[in-house]
């Protein structure tokens, strides 16, 4: 039975994407045809302007610019986020102090406040500060949804680091640098890398905040797709193609998780988070911004 549920869940998750690929390759795909009656490659010869993937690949579509912007902003957000969140995570993981619960709640708050409410406020603030419509503004704005997630997952990673080990090393004459170089970094690196990867994804997926703070001037793949989607009817090939491009960052992350970070992310390792259910919640929750 478990195997059945597993296959069902996997099929339900993955099968929809097959239709997306077909939709992106269609030229004319009317009801009730199961497959397009005319494919993109059959029509592209006669088209006076680029159609389907030809358009997506052309500079006019700005698809590549969008992907590059997405990657640059998400990369910068990840770096800034790590720089801010890691020290806080260390403190939360290893120290006890008065008001710790309050601090933890504060750092979790952006998860519980609807993104739209944050976006509407940020849009105005960004105008007043003068960063509206700029990469800087979007970068700063993205730190909000990324931060709570990073703090909690990094705290979970830090909890997993046994400080007795560091003490033992120091007793045996290791310098602070040695501890960092030979103990902390190798032991923490996979967990931190996984955290950073998810932070990157969170930033790449933020829509409403980017639209409102970026004022249409900062085009990421997510905002490009959002602008093309509108209720009702079928999905046109170009929108389908943009949806596929928007799937890319997640697919890359999946491959990295499966191949490179396998040891850190299988269930046994994840279960380490179980000591702190909240951390487990955030670890995955922030993938649904």
């Amino acid at each position: 039975m478990n195997a059945g549920i597993r296959s069902l869940a996997a099929a339900l998750a993955a099968l929809p994407f097959a239709a997306l690929v077909i939709a992106s390759l269609a030229f004319r795909w009317t009801w009730p045809d199961l497959l397009p009656s005319t494919w993109w490659w059959e029509a592209r010869g006669e088209a006076r302007l680029p159609i389907g993937w030809d358009y997506v690949a052309s500079p006019a579509a700005r698809a590549w610019v969008g992907l590059a912007t997405t990657a640059t902003i998400a990369g910068a957000v990840t770096v800034v986020g790590l720089a801010i969140a890691w020290p806080a995570a260390r403190v939360l993981a290893h120290e006890r102090f008065r008001g710790k619960a309050v601090v933890e709640t504060l750092l979790l708050a952006p998860l519980l406040v609807p993104e739209l409410a944050i976006a509407l406020g940020l849009a105005t603030v960004a105008v007043q500060v003068g960063v509206a419509g700029s990469w800087w503004g979007v970068l700063l704005a993205h730190v909000v949804p990324v931060l709570p997630y990073l703090v909690r997952t990094l705290a979970a990673v830090e909890v997993g680091f046994d400080r007795d080990l560091a003490d033992a090393a120091r007793v045996h004459g290791a310098s602070a640098w040695d501890v960092l170089r030979y103990l902390r970094l190798p032991l923490l690196a996979p967990g931190v890398a996984a955290s950073a990867l998810f932070a990157f994804l969170v930033s790449a997926h933020v829509v409403v905040v980017t639209v409102l703070v970026g004022q249409g001037r900062v085009e990421t793949t997510a905002t490009q797709l959002f602008a093309r989607l509108g209720g009702g009817g079928a999905l046109d090939p170009i929108t389908a193609a943009f949806a596929l491009l928007m799937t890319l960052p997640g697919l890359v992350a999946l491959v990295i998780l499966q191949r490179v970070l396998r040891s850190q992310t299988d269930v046994a390792a994840v279960s380490r988070l179980a000591r702190d259910p909240g951390a487990g919640a955030d670890r995955t929750r922030t993938l649904t911004p």
Partner: peptide
């Protein structure tokens, strides 16, 4: 009743035979 939000959405309803 379904009222599409934009003209392109209306166009897709027509193209889809709805």
């Amino acid at each position: 009743p379904v009222y599409p939000p934009t003209a392109p959405a209306w166009e897709r309803l027509l193209a889809g035979g709805e």
